[in-house]
Design a binder for these strands. Structure first.
Lengths: 362, 362
DNA sequence: CTGAAAGCGCTTACAG
DNA sequence: CTGAAAGCGCTTACAG
């Protein structure tokens, strides 16, 4: 095949024009080995005249390194993952790496496909928020890891998977939020959202514990456990009707909140662990004519600037989301650099930002 | 060099194991040409046994096609660009393309660097939201386009640049917003934000017109022109003090809104053309003790679910942001497929969602 | 239908 | 310090 685009000069053409061998031109342009000042000049001049740019693809072909990190996240349009990706991308760029992103939409099959695609493109490593819960097979991710592609989990962890991970300390965050509400005097605290699973018939605390520990996205399970721990420490019995299960969308939250607020012992406070949960609770509170914080307290997990211009501003557990991504990339890059530490699992702490949506129960 | 990872079998190994030539194995695995059913079987079996996956890098090396689209956006953590990228990524994936994303942070130098990086990685085409305004040199983007890399501009256009483009109809959107406020009885309508340039001394309408037409990000300029056109059509003189200039951040908006609201002929309505503008205006309105919509009307450009749980819900110009990205990718992919139409510049229309933050002036 | 050979644009020992 | 040669893992005419 001839060069499809004659305006893209190759190393050989630069060498010919400079009147030197290809290896010398390569040494100058690749910035390694040693060359005489004279040839260096000639090569650089020739390269500039031709407008030469290294073909990274060809370089990767021979070095076996692409300087590219593959990233698999649920949905880049979700502000949480957008911030994670921004963090990854910044840390990667700082170290000279590019990033190839694929959305999984929380679908394990799309995730598998994405991972195979990335491995096919010879990425040097993969950062992924595994879909399908802690017990998901995640076959492609495990396969990639076994073949020697560096893998770092972000925001979630897979049980029995030996790859590094960076997650929020979700258990602690939820416990802190619940403790704060309990300290304000609340005893009926609702959690939105919890496990995505649907019970047949009534959901019991046993179901919840089992779901939290096994088949859910680990961050969701951890939050449930933190919430439950705070209640237990305060001697408050856990009411499964106050824990959202099922479809994790704004609509799902609204259904849950509507039912909970209509019931007998209605909750006097909500913990909303996702942006969409905050939105859903606010929408239903408004629909029910409840005024925050007098009629209902709320703590959200979200760092949106909208939270502070809401009336009242929403008390928030601020999570270092971008840092989560940065840290995952740093660990991956350290591995690519030959770091041989044992498996790393880092937990990042949140910070509570009191803004006014928490008050004693009416 | 030997294969750095012996667990990654190559085409040759598959061929050897199947007892056929490399070309035959290539034909089977690459799914082209014709092979006997017998060899096909043998090759597929051998590939499965070895766990063979095509090395896309090597394939790209010989075909000259990477099936990858490079994307340069200001900031993936900004919900607008996150949605654009989601659209690009979906359309790309549907056509078998991957996407390589780089943030420019609105910095022309970072943009140049990003474009060179992408060209170096041999992307088949580039989608970019050019930084630095309509008259920016954007040397790398023009260079890439001239060398034959397909380029599509998204959200912004560069003057005198012959590449396809997809943008919002920003002029029409701003005109519509202004008309709506004027129809409600407002005559003092403020625009946040406008051109980023700072005047020395007083900013005049002439300055604004010049800045809008020349050196700004074209979407910002277009919005100013639509706003000005609506005022003119209604016979309302344009007051430069009601058009924000300078730093385009939440803080910048707050400074502008504070000054405007404190002045003599204070605005009775705001048009906020970015999420951060909406947030900034809301924050200052609250600080000034103004209640929406009785004391102040507001129309925002933003599709955040937060807008509808705000009190009052914010009347919004909903823009098909994800569609913007999809469409850009579709055009690019059509070009890669050999489409030879003349240059395409598509304008996408917005839709007004009336929610309650507009009322007649108090 | 099939296989040996050349080529994509680099890097990397290996002699000189 | 320098250059000819081999190699990375594919694809693609070209004979047979």
């Amino acid at each position: 095949m001839t060069n499809p685009d004659p305006s893209r000069p190759t190393l050989s053409e630069v060498a010919r024009r400079a009147g030197v061998g290809r290896s010398s031109a390569a040494r100058v342009l690749g910035n390694y080995g040693s060359v005489s000042e004279h040839t260096r000049r000639r090569v650089l001049v020739a390269a500039a005249e031709l407008g030469y740019e290294t073909n990274e693809l060809a370089r990767s072909m021979s070095t076996g390194v692409t300087m590219t990190i593959g990233v698999v996240l649920a949905d880049i349009a979700n502000p949480f993952f957008a911030a994670v990706f921004r963090g990854i991308s910044d840390a990667a760029r700082a170290a000279g790496y590019g990033t190839l992103l694929v959305n999984s939409d929380e679908d394990p099959e799309l995730e598998d496909e994405a991972v195979r695609l990335l491995v096919g493109k010879q990425v040097d490593g993969i950062i992924a928020a595994p879909a399908g819960g802690a017990h998901a097979p995640a076959a492609a991710l495990r396969w990639a890891h076994e073949r020697g592609t560096a893998v770092v989990q972000v925001d979630r962890t897979l049980n029995g998977f030996d790859a590094d991970a960076v997650v929020m300390d979700n258990r602690d965050a939820a416990r802190t939020a619940a403790e704060r509400l309990i300290a304000a005097g609340h005893r009926r605290v609702a959690l939105a959202w919890g496990p995505a699973r649907q019970g047949r018939g009534a959901v019991t605390a046993d179901h919840l514990r089992e779901w939290a520990g096994s088949s859910e996205i680990s961050s969701v399970g951890e939050r449930y456990l933190g919430y439950a721990a705070a209640l237990e420490a305060a001697g408050i019995p856990l009411d499964p009707a106050l824990v959202m299960t099922g479809e994790q969308t704004i609509e799902g939250v609204r259904r849950f909140a509507r039912r909970a607020l209509a019931g007998e012992g209605r909750p006097t406070a909500f913990i909303a662990t996702e942006v969409d949960a905050v939105i859903g609770v606010l929408a239903e509170a408004r629909a029910a004519g409840l005024v925050l914080p007098a009629d209902l307290s709320l703590i959200g997990f979200d760092d949106s600037p909208w939270a502070s211009v809401h009336d009242p501003p929403i008390t928030t557990l601020r999570q270092p989301v971008q840092r989560l991504g940065e840290h995952a990339a740093e660990i991956l890059i350290a591995r690519l650099g030959g770091d041989r530490r044992p498996r790393v699992v880092d937990h990042l702490a949140s910070e509570t930002v009191d803004q006014g949506s928490v008050a004693p129960p009416g």
